[in-house]
Design a protein around this nucleic acid. Structure first.
Lengths: 215, 215
DNA sequence: GCAAAAGTGTTAGGAGTACACCCATGC
DNA sequence: GCATGGGTGTACTCCTAACACTTTTGC
């Protein structure tokens, strides 16, 4: 290929993460306010231009760190966005991911080199965002709902184990629907992703609940 | 973003298709021989550098056309390949797709501006390819096996309808395993993707078989 | 009449879903 | 003793997978 062929010069790769949390039973997504053009002062997802020296997920983690101070976020691929006009500056392809963290356990940097604010927004109260980030979130929520039942993404909420009612609450918040307690137990125990411990704890009720852990 | 920042200058996007066919019960993939560096004279998948003026699938179809003469191939997204060293020339991200055509119904251009040959290779007899294309094919076969049961990708083989034994043969060739005739019928009829016609035809047997069509 | 393929039905197991009652505890 | 949430079992449906015999027809 010809490195300087104008037909495909000035292209770049965005790596973008929709970082979610569940806060008091409500699914939220992390947005940052941009300091720079394009879309100066707009809210946006975390992410940015991939460097030549980085693999995709490494670049994404650098971007997340630069814009929020968060380190080593575990992400899962969601979708590719590549329409030719999605960036006003130059041709950018977006490789998008989802991640989930426990907002109560981390400190988000509100002011960085590139951002002037950072907030958790409820799904449904997300403002108009930079680029095609609104569309990216829509797809990210789909991916999240699919992945959550197949993976241990929720581990971040429970470093020291969890009771099934606790876990179910998180599932319900993300899927945005009530689940039957008996069916949830059967399903989650059948996945082989979690194992019971000998410990018990009282969570919301008066009766003790058994503590489980992710494998 | 700074257009001339060297950290993310000279990046590009590959759009790449693993184009499959089934030929006498054998799954094959289309490869072309490259005329140019890098990987001059190597076999490779169809595809190439996306232009700034094109959406992803449009660019892919242009590349397929330029390298094989094939037009309007229906493709499905497979996977993203983005390790930093996957191209020796510059930083390239590959957005990969699968497609399927009936090799007996098309003419593949063997000599083009960019290719000196084109051949169908049996899966398992694919040579060492350019870039990471061997790995791309491996993933593409996975995607193909998943998509084939959910989509009407196989329509291309049967523009005038098909009998269930015929369709089953193709499925078996792609999945690389025998299927039970009764279970296959039940499953495929349940998908609601095909409808029976009033016509019948003899295919391999002596008894007539009913002709179906994709919706 | 027989070889070769087309067509068909039943059963068993697993996953999902709907649903109701008892248990342990704090107050 | 009662309110609150934790824990459990059963029945139905649907999907999957295994499996054997009859039908048609060309030779």
């Amino acid at each position: 290929m010809e490195v300087n062929n104008p037909k495909y010069q000035h292209q770049g790769i965005h790596v973008i993460a929709s970082i979610f949390t569940v806060d008091k039973g409500v699914l939220k997504v992390l947005l940052v306010k941009r300091k720079n053009e394009p879309f100066k002062d707009c809210w946006a997802l975390t992410g940015g231009a991939l460097y030549n020296t980085e693999d995709l997920e490494d670049g994404l983690n650098r971007e997340i760190y630069e814009k929020t101070g968060l380190k080593n976020i575990k992400v899962k691929f969601s979708k590719v966005f590549g329409t030719k006009d999605r960036s006003p500056v130059m041709r950018m392809i977006a490789i998008t991911y989802i991640g989930i963290i426990d907002a109560s356990k981390v400190e988000i940097a509100k002011d960085t080199l590139k951002t002037s604010n950072a907030e958790w927004f409820k799904i449904g109260e997300v403002p108009q965002l930079a680029y095609d980030h609104n569309e990216i979130i829509t797809e990210a929520i789909k991916t999240l709902k699919e992945e959550i039942l197949k993976t241990d993404l929720l581990k971040v909420f429970f470093p020291n184990g969890f009771t099934l009612p606790e876990l179910q609450k998180i599932y319900e918040s993300i899927l945005n629907k009530k689940l039957d307690r008996r069916n949830f137990r059967k399903k989650i125990l059948n996945t082989n992703m979690i194992i019971p411990t000998e410990e018990e704890i009282t969570f919301e009720g008066k009766k003790k609940a058994k503590i489980y852990k992710f494998k």
